[in-house]
Design a protein around this nucleic acid. Structure first.
Lengths: 154, 154
DNA sequence: AGTAATTGCATTATACTATGATTGATTTGG
DNA sequence: CCAAATCAATCATAGTATAATGCAATTACT
């Protein structure tokens, strides 16, 4: 018996910030977290990522769920695996990963903005809303503060 | 035989703008379209929405898929049905629908903004990006114009 | 009244996907 | 050479999106 081998807890903590109740599949959440970690440099080329078993145990998920998340990223070329050893960040892909990541983020933002327009908000209102959102640092899944009520009616 | 009864084609066209290949379920896309239509006033209280069979035939989907989309909105109270007659917009809910819709839109925007931050963009960069996106009217699913390449690297 | 047409509703079936349980294969370290 | 760690592969299960089909209610027209 004895304590299971401990992996770098920074990364473990980061990857543990998944929300089981969020509706989006666990393996997809993990993939997004890993993508951002690689793109931002939090995970460097050659770094080992937590063994599937350990992360699974940590977040009370099944090994296969974690493995699937890893496997897809391996297929994309972002990670590579060495059987018996672990999963590692591919050294050649960080640059491309950052760009892909940004493209996704910008596409998301663009979609959100067109949705704002569709709902009847004008461009100036949208800019004001963006500025207000950026400066007020609302936590995710929190109810909208009353200071935003002017944007609900127009 | 004979031509099937034709429904108001404006609305039919609008509801037909669903993307089968988009990954998100058909019935959810329809629900979002209907929500926005009601919230924006395109669909007025008491208006009839297309019979499930007709819309199903129009977009080559199954009747049950359309019915499920309608049924959920009935449960939410946005629509009501009269068997043999059709599905109608509930007169009492348009106001609340608009607010709920706005909340969802703003929550989406907030999420997109925090993702921008997570990817390393600064607040000023984000504001600039928003202004640029608003003024350049990029179509959905289009590749990012090269004028945005400065936002891919920072 | 009565019959046909239009419509929503209910039941059942199927395919796909996310997750789980388990066993096998490969590498390292002592 | 053996034990431990790790990824890989196979199979099972639950939930969900879609589909096929028949039933029930309402209307319109004769």
């Amino acid at each position: 018996m004895g304590q299971a081998k401990q992996f770098d807890s920074h990364l473990l903590n980061f990857l543990s910030s998944v929300d089981v109740a969020s509706g989006t599949p666990l393996y997809q959440q993990l993939q997004t977290l890993l993508l951002f970690a690689i793109a931002s440099g939090k995970l460097k080329p050659g770094d080992q990522i937590p063994p599937a078993r350990e992360l699974a145990n940590r977040i009370n998920a099944n090994v296969n769920t974690i493995s699937k998340a890893y496997r897809d990223l391996v297929v994309m070329g972002l990670l590579y695996t060495r059987r018996g050893m672990g999963v590692y960040v591919n050294p050649d892909m960080s640059e491309r990963c950052r760009e892909d990541c940004r493209r996704r983020v910008i596409a998301n933002l663009a979609a959100a903005l067109t949705q704002c327009r569709t709902s009847g908000l004008g461009d100036e209102e949208i800019k004001e809303l963006v500025a207000k959102l950026l400066s007020s640092n609302i936590p995710p899944n929190a109810p909208l503060p009353s200071s935003f009520s002017k944007f609900l009616k127009s």
